[in-house]
C-alpha cells in the first residue's frame, strides 16, 4: 500500500483508577491511506473513542501514532477532531470567528484571506448568511456543520470525527450524512469516522472496520458499494448483515 497517511503501531492504552486497571486498547495496528473515509463501528466500551483520542493526542499511550511516518503524542492542527458534543464551538465567538480563530493561530494574519477561507468553509456546509451568529443562536445540526466547516477550513491531514451526528434527530442526521458525502466528493479529505450506526457506516465509509473490546479488529474491508448507497442498493442487505454479525458477535456468544 502506498501513500500511508496514518499508521498505528502496537497502540496500547491502559486506564488506571481506584477500581483497578483496564486495558482499553491492546496493541492495535492500523494503516490508513490518504483520501480514505474510514468508518469505525463498535459496541459501547470497545475503545473506539479512546482510539480516536489517542490519535488526536488527547491521551497518553504506549506504542506509536505516525502521521506521514512522523510520531505524534500531542494534539496538533494536522489532526482535527469533530466531537459529538454540540458545545465544541466557543460560545464567545461568532460562527465566522470560530472558523477564523484556528486559521489565525496557524499563521494566517491577512484579514481578506481569513474572510475568504471562512466564507468558503461556511458555504460548503451551507450556512452562508449565518456568519455573525453566536453558537447559542444555532440548532444542534447547525453547530455540527460549523464544527465540520472549522475542520475543513484548516485543511488538516486527517479529520477525526467522533460520532458527530449521534445526538441529532433522524431527519437532521440524514441531511448531514448527505452533505458529508457531497463535501467529501469535492474535498477528498482523509477521515476517520466513529459511529455505532451500521447504516451510517455503509453510507459514508470507503472502508469499514469493526472493533470489539480491547480494540480488537474483527472486520476490516473496503466498502465497494457505489455511492450514494441506499437500502435498495445491491448487496446492502448482505453487508448490513455481515456488519451486524461482527458487531454483535461477542454479546451473542
Amino acid at each position: 500500500m502506498s501513500d500511508i497517511l496514518l499508521e498505528l503501531k502496537g497502540l496500547t492504552k491502559i486506564f488506571t483508577d481506584d477500581a483497578g486497571t483496564a486495558e482499553v486498547l491492546r496493541s492495535v495496528d492500523l494503516k490508513v491511506p490518504e483520501k480514505e473515509f474510514l468508518c469505525i463501528l463498535g459496541p459501547s466500551g470497545c475503545g473506539k473513542t479512546t482510539l480516536l483520542r489517542c490519535i488526536a493526542g488527547f491521551e497518553t499511550f504506549t506504542g506509536s501514532v505516525l502521521i506521514d511516518g512522523q510520531p505524534r503524542t500531542q494534539p496538533g492542527t494536522d489532526r482535527i477532531m469533530v466531537f459529538q458534543d454540540f458545545n465544541q464551538l466557543f460560545p464567545w465567538k461568532t460562527v465566522e470567528k470560530n472558523i477564523q480563530y484556528p486559521l489565525r493561530l496557524s499563521g494566517i494574519k491577512d484579514k481578506a484571506e481569513l474572510k475568504r477561507r471562512s466564507d468558503e468553509a461556511i458555504a460548503k456546509v451551507q450556512l452562508t448568511g449565518w456568519e455573525h451568529y453566536y453558537p447559542y443562536q444555532l440548532s444542534g445540526g447547525m453547530k455540527q456543520r460549523v464544527a465540520i466547516a472549522k475542520a475543513l477550513a484548516l485543511k488538516p491531514r486527517i479529520i477525526l470525527m467522533d460520532e458527530p451526528f449521534a445526538a441529532l434527530d433522524a431527519m437532521t442526521r440524514r441531511d448531514l450524512q448527505k452533505e458529508m458525502l457531497r463535501i467529501l466528493g469535492e474535498e477528498e479529505s482523509t477521515v476517520i469516522f466513529i459511529t455505532h450506526n451500521i447504516q451510517e457506516a455503509i453510507f459514508l465509509g470507503t472502508r469499514i472496520l469493526v472493533l470489539q473490546p480491547g480494540g480488537e479488529i474483527v472486520y476490516d474491508e473496503p466498502n465497494t458499494l457505489p455511492k450514494p448507497v441506499t437500502p435498495a442498493s445491491d448487496e446492502y442487505g448482505r453487508l448490513w448483515g455481515t456488519l451486524n454479525a461482527a458487531l454483535y458477535s461477542r454479546s451473542q456468544g
Partner: peptide, 12 residues
C-alpha cells in the same frame, strides 16, 4: 467544560 479545553488544545 473539558470540551472547550480539548477543542483549544486541538487547534494548537
Amino acid at each position: 467544560p473539558q470540551i472547550y479545553v480539548e477543542a483549544g488544545r486541538n487547534i494548537g
